[in-house]
């Protein structure tokens, strides 16, 4: 039976893939403390590319804009977020070997 007290906090991970580029959000992970979070981010999110820098932030420390505002929610301008090319990236070589 899991003990809620013992659950490790959630951290959001941002990786700078190459010098000169921005840090990009790549996902989250659980860690007990910041030192562990940074190490785990390296293990989990930079195994295939040389991330030059990793940021971790406790998810609870992130303040986000609220898309729940009904008027803004349906504003056509909001859609530009979904036009970002990275959201449509197709994986290579998955249908043939």
């Amino acid at each position: 039976m899991s003990d809620v007290k013992a659950e490790w906090p959630l951290w959001e991970v941002f990786v700078r893939p190459k010098a000169g580029l921005d840090h990009k959000h790549c996902g989250s992970l659980h860690a007990a403390d910041a030192a562990m979070a940074v190490q785990m981010a390296r293990e989990v999110y930079t195994r295939r590319q040389e991330g030059t820098s990793v940021w971790v932030v406790k998810s609870s420390d992130i303040t986000a804009s609220d898309p729940g505002d009904k008027d803004m929610y349906f504003d056509p301008m909001e859609d530009k977020v979904y036009r970002h090319p990275t959201f449509y990236e197709l994986p290579e070589a998955v249908n043939h070997m």
Partner: peptide, 25 residues
């Protein structure tokens, strides 16, 4: 099964699937 999921309407799932598909081949 996973390639179509990269187009799932729920973006965090779709993004995870993109990352997964990249590694899966």
């Amino acid at each position: 099964n996973q390639v179509p999921l990269t187009r799932c309407s729920y973006a965090p799932y779709a993004r995870a699937m993109v990352r997964i598909c990249r590694e899966e081949s």
